[in-house]
């Protein structure tokens, strides 16, 4: 599974995927600009692979996940799932697609309806899609709860009776209900305590092996991403700036932004920490409504040359399987 260089038909591919949100002003609500939340993504995910997606707050990770799942319509570009262009699917065709792709959210608290029992939360997608009813439905719910390590006897309880980690398990059980092939995990551990994070990460891995799942794993925890992802994509201000296998990315980052980001990852080793040098970037991330011209990182880049603020860098393949968007990378 991990790091396998064999190219299969990808499970999912995006081409020039773009999502702009209009910025409206005035009484007539005229459009005066656009938040360029996601701007021209190109990548593919192989079956049973975990692709990590990292980057700072507001760089467009969640938006990318939602557009890929067609929870929102892209402004431009294409999404291809199992060889089929799903970019313009609507109505019944889109509904038939839903079971195959699911999402797990950051905050287990917000994503579960507090007035529904755990059983009805997990069975809702099954009922909605007419996948099971009666005794078969109950059995399926029990199997799902068991699969995520929850006691099936909990089916009659309510979300508030559970801890954060347990609630995240309920969300995972629900996402698994319709046998999806592809799951977008949007910061699935960010709201959990360190001692509970490991439980959820282990569970996601186990389920991946058991059910052959493919993940897009969104996170800002670069340590955890290295642990779970086969390949990692780094986003900055709506664009992917670098994509490589985990080992290549962490051992030999080519983009100056990736380098800065990795230099800030703590290692829980005081000896190593005492020797390491952090790359400190100046200033703040610019607004995605007014991204800088040329390379979007040019305003904070420690090695930028005049060219960088004039021309946008191409999305180049510098080593086999290692792509980067930087004029200076070699």
């Amino acid at each position: 599974m991990r790091g396998c260089p064999v190219q299969h038909e990808p499970l999912l591919a995006v081409e020039n995927l773009t999502k702009h949100f209009p910025v409206m002003r005035g009484v007539l609500r005229r459009q005066v600009g656009a938040v360029q939340a996601v701007d021209g993504l190109d990548f593919a995910i192989q079956p049973r692979e975990t692709l990590g997606l990292v980057g700072e707050s507001g760089c467009g990770k969640s938006t990318a996940g939602r557009v890929i799942l067609r929870l929102e319509a892209p402004t431009a570009g294409r999404v291809i799932f199992r060889g089929e262009d799903i970019t313009r699917l609507e109505g019944e065709a889109l509904r038939r697609l839903r079971p195959h792709m699911q999402m797990i959210f950051q905050d287990p608290q917000d994503s579960l309806n507090p007035r529904m029992t755990v059983g009805s939360i997990v069975s809702e997608p099954l009922r909605e899609h007419g996948a099971a009813k009666g005794a078969a439905l109950r059995e399926r719910v029990e199997a799902l709860l068991e699969a995520v390590g929850l006691d099936p006897a909990f089916a009659n309880r309510y979300p508030h009776e559970f801890s954060g980690g347990q609630r995240q398990r309920i969300g995972v059980a629900r996402a698994l209900a319709l046998h999806p092939e592809f799951i977008v995990c949007d910061e699935p551990i960010a709201a959990l305590d360190v001692s509970i994070q490991a439980q959820v990460v282990n569970l996601l891995k186990e389920l991946q092996e058991r059910f052959g799942l493919t993940y897009l794993f969104i996170s800002h925890d670069l340590r955890m991403v290295r642990h779970v992802a086969d390949r990692v994509a780094v986003m900055y201000l709506g664009k992917i700036v670098e994509l490589a296998t985990s080992d290549a990315l962490y051992e030999e980052p080519l983009h100056p932004y990736t380098r800065a980001l990795l230099s800030a990852v703590p290692t829980h080793d005081p000896e190593r920490e005492a020797r390491r040098t952090r790359i400190i970037l100046e200033g703040d991330v610019p607004s995605p409504a007014a991204p800088p011209p040329g390379c979007r990182f040019s305003t904070r880049c420690p090695v930028a040359v005049p060219e960088c603020s004039r021309r946008e860098p191409e999305w180049r393949t510098l080593r086999p399987g290692h792509r980067v968007a930087c004029h200076l990378a070699e």
Partner: peptide
Amino acid sequence: RSLLRALPRPDGGGRGERLASIPGQP
């Protein structure tokens, strides 16, 4: 000890292995 073992290894070693987690709740 458990907290330290629950952190992924900084060198990326042990990928694919289970992290040591602490059972139960605070």
